[in-house]
């Protein structure tokens, strides 16, 4: 694997859209060609080279390309947009849309990540060492398909809309979350290791939520059916199992109704 290191030399005045920073677009290009890739600040089209200095060398393919981003890039969005392979390491906080529509590869953000982290993600892995905000692995507005594959791990806390309309994949929030977890989901797994304010599994057709802390305001549409031992992110706990959302439509498999599940640590 080859590594391209990009170091911030100039802060944008507003916010910069770094949709070109993906292993897919860097692969097979010289450093000069990479520095020539576009980035929008409002209506102005800059080049990446106007803000970053580049070192190292890109791989022949995306899978063989690692990108290291140095400097404070918290005012830059869309790192790793639609990437399919390779790696990105961001050594600071990043703005919105990290790994949006991502299909493969790996992104690590050392600081916080802003909203729309991994929206509509199909595969790959995102790790945020700080906090995330709203719309983690959820769907784009009006889309019924949220995250469908891959893994998002947030080591800090998150806001609302975790896995909205999710159909597959796993989201792990190690801290607390606010409201709307797996809303409208039709599959997928969300693990919240801290507390949640409420609205876990609202309008959920199917999917699994694991909550290791408390749910302050549980929804009426979930009913306790069992106490089970289950493995969750490598450890086994005893959970109270709730099924629902009883208000939402439900599918059947082999004559049996399939419900969404909330596993609340007993």
């Amino acid at each position: 694997m080859e590594t391209v290191t990009m170091t911030l030399v100039q802060h944008p005045e507003l916010y910069l859209e770094c949709y070109s920073v993906t292993p897919d677009l860097f692969a097979g290009k010289s450093l000069a060609e990479i520095a020539d890739l576009p980035a929008h600040e409002g209506k102005i089209v800059w080049k990446l080279g106007d803000f970053f200095k580049f070192d190292g060398k890109s791989g022949a393919t995306a899978a063989e390309t690692r990108i290291i981003v140095n400097g404070d890039v918290h005012k830059m969005k869309r790192f790793g947009q639609q990437m399919t392979a390779g790696e990105i390491l961001i050594n600071s906080a990043a703005d919105m849309y990290v790994g949006c529509w991502m299909r493969g590869g790996k992104i690590t953000v050392k600081g916080n990540a802003d909203a729309f982290l991994g929206i509509a993600m199909e595969g790959g892995e995102i790790t945020v060492e700080g906090d995330a905000t709203n719309h983690v692995g959820s769907a784009y507005r009006g889309d019924w398909r949220g995250m469908s594959g891959g893994l998002i791990r947030v080591k800090g806390k998150a806001g609302n809309d975790i896995g909205t309309a999710m159909t597959g994949g796993t989201i792990i929030i190690e801290g607390d979350a606010f409201i709307h977890v797996l809303t409208h989901a039709d599959g997928g797994t969300v693990i919240i290791k801290g507390d949640v304010e409420g609205r876990v599994g609202g309008q959920m057709v199917k999917g699994d939520a694991y909550v290791l802390g408390k749910i302050l305001y549980p929804l009426p549409g979930f009913k306790k059916v069992a106490t089970v031992e289950k493995e969750c992110d490598g450890q086994t706990y005893t959970f109270d199992q709730y099924i629902g959302d009883l208000g939402e439509r439900k599918g059947k498999k082999k004559g049996e109704v399939i419900y969404g599940n909330i596993y609340l640590k007993a």
Binding site: G198, R199, G202, Y217, L219, P220, G221, D245, L246, G247, E248
Partner: peptide, 12 residues
């Protein structure tokens, strides 16, 4: 939201 959920449970 909870109240809507409750109404939906009754209707369904």
């Amino acid at each position: 939201y909870e109240l809507f959920d409750a109404f939906r449970m009754v209707v369904n």
